[in-house]
Nucleic acid binder design. Structure first.
Lengths: 114, 114
DNA sequence: ATAAGGTGCAACCGATTGGTTGCGTAATGA
DNA sequence: TCATTACGCAACCAATCGGTTGCACCTTAT
């Protein structure tokens, strides 16, 4: 999925574990080991998932001494939603309204990594 | 990705070919052979992609004689966007607004398959 | 009747993926 | 100092994925 920002975001959200990680980090930023302790998988597996989310631009890494704390950066979500609203807007009035809302200025907008 | 509606949607949208197929079908419903003729891949490959999109509830199949025409059913997009808006809404004001909009009644809402 | 066109099914292949384990490195704290 | 702790890198494995090819089935048209 090289050079495919949208694909990276959707691909990252495709895995249940990654969606759960995202929600957990949304509640409270955490480190890989912390997250792994609450899941039935190894720390390395969690780290790989976090890398996938980071590559999609959905996570921010902040080093604090010997551990690394992850927090959510939701900007790519907005762009992904914009794509969806555009495709679905032709049938669904609500989606076309969203499409307009997403393109309107409102909060600081960032760009997908690439 | 069994029994994972959201994962099916995101997974379907993760592939560039499938997103392009979705956009093409959005412009005008088409058959697998038609779509394959405009792509550098075989009809079987296209069929597999269409199956993936169908499994996510994003496409509707309509048999017409000897061919099958696909059209878009954007309902699952709405639900996927709702999930995203909920996760991202804590940081982004615009997303939290969208989250409210998505939960409000507006157009006939369908449910994800599963 | 028979050829042609569109679909479905199945086998197969190489690449990717989610997961593991093992080991090396760096920062913390007793 | 030295054990502990959090992390990174790499190898490895089974399963899944995107793609191909070959073939059988059914509908349409000559």
């Amino acid at each position: 999925m090289a050079e495919d920002p949208a694909g990276a975001v959707f691909g990252a959200l495709a895995e249940p574990v990654r969606r759960q990680l995202l929600q957990t980090i949304a509640d409270h930023p955490a480190t890989a080991t912390e997250l792994a302790s609450r899941l039935p998988i190894s720390r390395q597996a969690v780290t790989k998932h976090l890398s996938s989310l980071s590559a999609a631009g959905l996570l921010e890494r902040e080093r604090a001494g010997r551990d690394i704390r992850y927090r959510v950066t939701p900007a790519p979500l907005t762009q992904a939603m914009s794509w969806m609203a555009e495709v679905g807007g032709q049938w669904d009035d609500r989606l076309s309204r969203l499409s307009r809302t997403l393109q309107a200025p409102g909060s600081p907008d960032a760009t997908l990594p690439g």
